[in-house]
């Protein structure tokens, strides 16, 4: 067998394995119980799947000029995937779109509760919604109100979008 044939087979194997990763994502989307675990399936296997697909492409094209473009494509995927996953995950957690019964350990819950207690929760904007903390159902208004209180209570828990605060 000459090298060409070997490379062809390798490329084909990469492409098939990469597609398999997309299949994994689809299965995960179907079978995982809640938003956050589905986020794992929706975002992660593609990182490796795309890597394999691009690898297959590189083996097929066999031109050095194409390699930097493929690396760039992967890099930008790497840069954007965690951000979207984080945004959806964070919003999902804060608006309580998650099922606590799927969690064996929840260490953020304590922090959020403590911060809420410290503030004692009469919110500046809203005069009387003391039950915001107890609203377990997906009551968007209550969730949003709590979100506001939370942000006030723990401004540091947020990443400063404007990247201020020099020297840290």
């Amino acid at each position: 067998m000459n090298t060409d044939a070997v490379l062809e087979i390798l490329a084909a194997a990469c492409l098939v394995a990469g597609s398999l990763m997309s299949l994994a994502a689809a299965i995960g989307m179907l079978r995982f119980p809640d938003l956050l675990s589905r986020m794992h399936a929706a975002t992660k296997p593609q990182v490796f799947g795309l890597f394999l697909l691009l690898m297959g492409l590189a083996l097929q094209l066999r031109s050095w000029a194409a390699v930097p473009v493929l690396i760039l494509a992967w890099l930008f995927q790497l840069l954007t995937v965690p951000v979207s996953a984080h945004m959806v995950g964070r919003a999902g957690y804060r608006t309580k779109h998650l099922r606590k019964d799927t969690l064996s350990i929840d260490e953020l819950d304590e922090v959020v509760r403590k911060a809420a207690e410290e503030e004692n929760l009469p919110m500046p904007g809203e005069s009387g919604s003391p039950n915001a903390d107890e609203a377990e159902e997906f009551d968007t208004a209550a969730a949003e109100a709590e979100l506001a209180a939370e942000s006030a209570a723990q401004a540091d828990l947020r990443r400063d979008a404007d990247g201020a605060a020099p020297g840290r």
Partner: peptide, 20 residues
């Protein structure tokens, strides 16, 4: 990646997660 595939296929809805 393969672990997630395995968890999706084998455990699916019974998966236990954690926030650490």
């Amino acid at each position: 990646s393969f672990q997630v595939l395995w968890v999706a296929v084998a455990k699916g809805p019974r998966t236990k997660n954690a926030v650490l």
